Amino acid sequence: MAQTEQIREKLRPGKVYRREDLEQYSSSVDRDLSNLVQEGALRKAARGVYYVPRKTAFGQAPPEDKELVRGFLKDNRFLLTSPNAYNSLGVGTTQLYNQPVVYNHKRHGTFKLGNRSYSFRVKPHFPKQVTEEFLLVDLVNNLAQLAENGEEVLARAADKAKEMDGPKLRAAVRQYGNVRTQKLFSSFLQNTP
């Protein structure tokens, strides 16, 4: 049990740990991790990924989404967003989606981390932070996956594009738009500075 205690001393609430991060503290890391999970000191988020629950006014909670994704990917280069963010653009999207989207360079697919599913999408380029320009380009990239009427949203997106900063939007379209999106935006922005 001494090795289990040695691992326990390293654990911090709200932090994510990979099995390989903890194996240096134990000669039987799998047994010790299993013991810590059984007693509730650790929770399993995914295969080889664990987290220490953080205490909140409502009880125990998983770590922040960014911390969980960072631990799962073993990488800081990702953008965590959600189709819910499109609603802030004012282009007619109103649906609420329960699955965050993670743009990254390593993993593609839907993965369950803890109690929540995340849609991981490999992209060569994405910003460090969500901008209004990126959101509009991303909305048009993903139009077919939205619950709203695509034609109506697209018409409002075209109007929104004309109101936005032309050079910034053009740069976002070049960097983040797929071929179809780039063609659509070239028609949207044809007569704008």
Rank of each mutant, 00 (worst) to 15 (best):
L73W: 12
L73A: 07
L73N: 08
K74T: 05
K74W: 15
K74A: 15
D75W: 02
D75P: 08
D75V: 07
R77D: 13
R77S: 11
R77G: 04
L79K: 06
L79V: 03
L79G: 03
L80C: 08
T81L: 03
T81Q: 00
T81D: 00
S82V: 08
P83K: 06
P83D: 00
P83T: 00
P83L: 00
P83N: 01
N84Y: 02
N84H: 02
N84I: 08
A85Q: 07
A85P: 02
A85Y: 11
Y86E: 02
Y86K: 03
Y86M: 01
N87V: 07
N87W: 00
N87A: 14
N87C: 05
S88W: 04
L89M: 09
L89P: 01
L89Q: 09
L89E: 05
G90D: 08
G90Q: 11
V91N: 08
V91S: 09
G92W: 12
G92M: 09
G92A: 05
G92E: 09
G92N: 10
T93K: 06
T94H: 13
T94F: 09
Q95F: 14
L96F: 15
L96D: 11
Y97H: 03
Y97I: 02
N98P: 01
N98D: 14
Q99W: 06
Q99P: 02
P100G: 03
P100K: 07
P100E: 00
V101T: 04
V101M: 05
V101L: 10
V101E: 02
Y103A: 00
N104F: 07
N104M: 03
N104E: 04
H105F: 05
K106I: 13
K106R: 13
K106C: 11
G109T: 06
G109I: 06
G109N: 02
T110I: 14
T110F: 12
T110Y: 12
F111I: 10
F111Y: 15
K112N: 09
L113C: 10
L113G: 06
L113F: 13
G114C: 08
G114H: 07
G114F: 06
N115W: 11
N115Q: 15
R116Q: 15
R116T: 12
S117R: 15
S117G: 08
Y118C: 03
S119N: 14
S119L: 15
R121S: 05
V122N: 01
V122L: 03
V122R: 09
V122D: 00
K123E: 14
K123G: 07
K123H: 10
P124N: 11
P124E: 14
P124H: 08
P124W: 06
H125D: 12
H125Y: 15
H125N: 13
H125I: 07
F126G: 01
